[in-house]
Structure formats: structure tokens, C-alpha cells
């Protein structure tokens, strides 16, 4: 017959075991969330493809980066920190300037007929360009689009574009995106300018 009071199991080592497990998980896991610039690559070109119709020069914003990490924007040397403002002015073309992109009327929900510019940003880098500069350029261009979208969203809906995205207001986000579509085209790389 079993005794009436079974001997108590000593639980004092339980804490040690738990600590051991805890330390194991602390060491083998990471907590950092992954952040990054999301981009979509163009699908590979079919071998026999007809040339796309040429885009007018005034509609293209050319950004070149060379192996010395210098930027040539629309034929002029530029610092990365000025790129955002230049891109914003190009995309928006507020004064309907002759040298900046053309606009065509488009029907957009919430807004009615809007003049949307036919802008395209063309980015070309050298094989020797540093990844850091590449990311800075991508970042500044994305910032230009985001700022324009934010300004528009504030004007129209009274909230920022980021907030619309967070709140999953898909129709409004889509409307704003169709007014300022992000068109960044990356040319095939060139190997010029040394190492």
C-alpha cells in the first residue's frame, strides 16, 4: 500500500532548469524586425520583343550614379540630399513647365478628373557604384513620392498617406497612387568609369 503522504518532490531546481531554458532562447533567437525598401523587379524580357515606344525626353528624369559615387541628375552634378526636392518638382510639375513632364487628364475616384503627369524616373548605376549610394538614391526617390502623396492626402482627406495605408483605406490609397504613380525604371547596368 502506498503511504498516505507521498514524499514531496524537491522543486528548488525547477528555477535553475527554467533559467537554463531562458538563457538558451535568449542566445539562439533574435528580436529585431526586418526593415527594408520594398521594390518589384521587372519580369525578364522575352527574347524577341519589339522596342517599346520611345518616351519623350521631358518625361524622363535621368539619374546616373558613377563609380566614384557621384550623381548626375538631368545632366547636372547633384548631391544626394538635393535629389528629393528635384525629384518632387519633376514629378509634380506645379507650373506646367515646358521642360518638365506632360500631363494627361485621368478619372480618379474621390478626385474626379485630375491632370496626372507622365513622369518616369530612370535610374542607372555603374558596376562600381557603392550599395550605400544606391540605397540612398532609392530612398530619396521613394521619399519624394511619399511626400507628394502625403501632401495630397492631407489636402484631400485631412490625414497623411501613411495613415491611410495603415488604416487599410484601400480605395483612397489607390486613388492617391494613381495620381502619383511610382515609376522608377532601372536601366541595365553599365561598366564604365573604372573599378
Amino acid at each position: 500500500m502506498a503511504s498516505k503522504n507521498p514524499p514531496e518532490i524537491n522543486a528548488s531546481s525547477m528555477a535553475d532548469i527554467a533559467f537554463l531554458l531562458l538563457v538558451f532562447f535568449l542566445v539562439t533567437t533574435t528580436m529585431d524586425t526586418d526593415l527594408g525598401l520594398m521594390r518589384k523587379l521587372p519580369p525578364p524580357l522575352p527574347p524577341q520583343v519589339e522596342k517599346p515606344p520611345p518616351i519623350k525626353d521631358r518625361n524622363v528624369f535621368v539619374v546616373l550614379a558613377n563609380a566614384n559615387d557621384q550623381l548626375l541628375v538631368e545632366g547636372e552634378l547633384m548631391d544626394v540630399k538635393d535629389l528629393k526636392e528635384a525629384a518632387k518638382e519633376f514629378i509634380e510639375n506645379p507650373m506646367n513647365n515646358e521642360t518638365l513632364p506632360e500631363k494627361k487628364p485621368v478619372q480618379v475616384d474621390f478626385f474626379g478628373e485630375v491632370m496626372v503627369s507622365k513622369q518616369v524616373i530612370s535610374l542607372q548605376n555603374d558596376n562600381g557604384t557603392s550599395y550605400d549610394l544606391y540605397i540612398q538614391v532609392q530612398n530619396e526617390l521613394a521619399a519624394a513620392y511619399n511626400e507628394l502623396r502625403n501632401e495630397l492626402a492631407m489636402d484631400k482627406f485631412g490625414v497623411s498617406y501613411d495613415k491611410l495605408v495603415d488604416d487599410k483605406q484601400k480605395a483612397k490609397v489607390k486613388a492617391i497612387r494613381s495620381i502619383f504613380p511610382q515609376r522608377i525604371s532601372e536601366a541595365e547596368p553599365k561598366d564604365v568609369g573604372g573599378n
Binding site: 526586418d34 526593415l35 527594408g36 525598401l37 520594398m38 523587379l41 530612398n139
Partner: peptide, 18 residues
Amino acid sequence: KQELRKVQALKLSYSTRE
């Protein structure tokens, strides 16, 4: 990136710090 295009892995994230 060209290799990724060839296999149709088109969604890309350039990992950065904030």
C-alpha cells in the same frame, strides 16, 4: 538581381536600418 529576374522572384526587399 538579374538572376532573380530569371527565376521570376520579383518581390524584393533591400534590407536597411531605419
